[in-house]
């Protein structure tokens, strides 16, 4: 590929991925039928996506359900071959040499543990150390770094099968960084976690990114993750890239939007998004006052959550 500076961790050019979906049949007879069936339909999961992720960046790869995020990550990790287009991860084509690519990446799929189910975490770590041929010194340094970032003692000697979802996710993230890969992919790592575990995990990711300059590609539906971790976001919808820039840029773009919060007579807060360019905030408050007594008013800058929602809704039209 030309036009590269050498500072890229991941490069994608015009990447497409189509799935051929067979209309499958049940049972033994159905299976035999499937073998010869030509009853396919094509699903385009990723359409012509071009993007670059630089070394050391944490980017949020966002999009509504079914947008094609996980599919993109599977291509970047080398388990799926793109239908067309080019991908380079750490300067190499991931699909061409899966094993080599795997040495230089870490992957976490939320709610899908990759650790040995019956082994205590520390034993899994040791096996991973050997699998990735990590020198003992580097391994110990990494464990020390983990200790300084998060309390790993409660999980270290527990078999994975006895862990809670949160502990398991934490363990999976630690395992993904263990061989100090230049790039780590996190697909919905905070799904199903409580607020305190979420913030622990965010701090951990941030700390590791800072210490090791690891590039992180993160997909999530939780804008708290985005606010805490990502400066830049890429949004895809229906397989197409619809946004790629800094979050601040996005907020400026929606700069005229305000979140208006009103405390009504029954002490409930009502929330609405107002575009100051088209609507006057005072008008809205006065109109509302006619219906109910208003106890308190707050006007806030638009939240990331609402910006993203606007974009998803906008592209749905």
């Amino acid at each position: 590929m030309d036009g590269l500076t050498g500072n890229e961790a991941v490069v994608m050019r015009n990447v497409c991925k189509d799935f051929k979906v067979l209309n499958r049949h049940e049972g033994l007879k159905g299976s035999i039928k499937d073998l010869f069936s030509r009853d396919y339909k094509t699903v385009s999961a990723v359409k012509d996506v071009t993007m670059t992720v630089n070394k050391g960046e944490i980017i949020g790869y966002l999009g509504p359900n079914g947008a094609g995020k996980s599919t993109t990550i599977k291509m970047m990790t080398g388990v799926l071959e793109p239908t067309s287009g080019e991908i380079l991860v750490n300067g190499k084509v991931p699909y061409k040499n899966r094993t080599e690519n795997c040495e230089n990446i870490g992957v976490v799929f939320g709610q899908r543990s990759q650790l040995w189910w019956s082994l205590p975490l520390i034993e899994s770590f040791k096996l991973l150390r050997d699998l990735y041929m990590v020198p003992q010194k580097d391994y110990e340094e990494m464990i020390d770094l983990y200790r300084s970032l998060v309390d790993i003692e409660p999980v270290l000697h527990k078999p994975v099968r006895q862990m809670s979802l949160g502990q398991r996710t934490l363990s999976d993230i630690l395992a993904a960084f263990l061989h100090n890969p230049p790039v780590v992919f996190l697909d919905e790592p905070t799904i199903g976690l409580d607020v305190s575990m979420k913030s622990k995990i965010r701090e951990l990711i941030l700390g590791l990114n800072k210490e090791k300059n690891t590039t992180v590609i993160l997909t999530t539906h939780d804008m708290g993750d985005v606010d805490a971790l990502c400066r830049r976001i890429v949004i895809i919808d229906k397989g197409m890239k619809i946004y790629d820039n800094d979050i601040d840029h996005l907020k400026n773009y929606f700069g005229s939007y305000r979140t208006l919060k009103l405390k009504l007579a029954d002490d409930t807060w009502e929330e609405m998004l107002i575009d100051e360019k088209t609507t006057d905030v005072m008008d809205v408050i006065m109109a509302k006052q006619k219906e109910s007594k208003i106890k308190d008013v707050k006007i806030l800058e638009i939240s990331t959550e609402e910006v993203i929602k606007k974009i998803y809704e906008g592209s749905a039209k």
Partner: peptide
């Protein structure tokens, strides 16, 4: 879809799967 986890390690997939 859990099978995907065997594809993320820098070793032979068949070996890794059977070794479990």
């Amino acid at each position: 879809g859990d099978f995907i986890k065997y594809c993320f390690r820098p070793v032979n997939v068949f070996f890794y799967f059977m070794s479990e």
